[in-house]
């Protein structure tokens, strides 16, 4: 079986004022269709850069991102991103925000009524249909992020990219949204890559956890498979042996072997 998404020896460096700083070095990873993969690492190690490379928002310096054997060289709706700070357009209502995406992606292939149904279906999926006529400023942070997820899903992406999607939320809202994402993933089987710095979140949601070493020139230090059956329930898992073992493995990687040294520079 060929890989759905393949990260083929990716290097990424930024040149600034004649000084070249290497951020990512020799990233090799294959992801299967329907898989949920988390990328975890200390802040500043290049997690978001890696996601931007997959999204096509930045170009690789060497190597290639291959989606279904086609090289990714520009951003597009088949690799939808849910941004950390939701990035909804504040002058549009919830419905219009999603409509912007849907009419751009499906404007030619679907009728107006079909597009409307599709928007409402995605709003239902994240339980936000009741707020369709609200503006982003009128809804809470968790709700905004739900709408952001709905907008990404409405593009019917081949890969859903989540860039620390719950980072700005409080713990309770975050748990709700994690459950919502798990639910959506089990229903749609969408291939998902999530950037996170939360160990519990990574273990709870992922099939595999990709751990990045510290930068500069970060690379994949370890890949951990999470052999937990789905559906997963956070309360049962909190005392589950496999869960705890996975959690410990990630913690050890992050805090023993690749301790983040603030004064590294």
């Amino acid at each position: 079986m060929t890989a759905y998404l393949k990260l083929d020896h990716i290097d990424k460096s930024f040149a600034r004022g004649g000084q070249v700083s290497e951020v990512l070095n020799d990233i090799r990873l294959t992801i299967d269709k329907g898989e949920f993969v988390s990328i975890i690492g200390h802040s500043g190690c290049g997690k978001s850069t890696l996601l931007n490379l997959i999204a096509g928002l930045t170009r690789v310096s060497a190597g290639a991102v291959l989606l279904e054997d086609k090289e990714v060289d520009s951003p597009g709706p088949e690799r939808a991103v849910v941004f950390q700070n939701h990035s909804l357009l504040p002058w549009l209502t919830v419905y219009e925000n999603i409509n912007l995406a849907v009419s751009k992606v499906f404007g030619r292939t679907r009728s107006r009524a079909e597009r409307h149904d599709w928007i409402m279906r995605n709003l239902d999926l994240v339980q936000m249909a009741h707020a369709r006529d609200k503006r982003p400023a009128e809804i809470s942070g968790g709700m905004k992020q739900r709408v952001g997820i709905a907008r990404a899903l409405a593009m019917e992406p081949k890969i859903l990219l989540l860039d620390e999607p719950f980072g700005a939320l409080d713990a309770l809202t975050r748990a709700h949204l994690q459950d919502a994402v798990m639910d959506i993933h089990s229903r749609l089987g969408s291939t998902t890559i999530m950037i996170t710095h939360d160990v519990d979140e990574a273990v709870l949601l992922s099939d595999r956890i990709v751990m990045l070493t510290n930068g500069p020139a970060a690379t994949i230090g370890e890949v951990l498979a999470v052999p937990l059956a789905r559906p997963r329930r956070r309360i049962e898992l909190s005392s589950d042996r496999t869960f705890l073992r996975c959690r410990e493995a990630v913690l050890k990687f992050l805090y023993e072997r690749h301790r983040f040294v603030e004064a590294a520079e």
Binding site: L57, P75, F83, S87, L89, L100, K104, M155
Partner: peptide, 23 residues
Amino acid sequence: DYRNVARILRLNQLEFFVKIMVP
């Protein structure tokens, strides 16, 4: 972020001007 949204949606110059830039 708004520019990134526009890039992911592949808005063309005119769409970007009308739908993102002016508002």
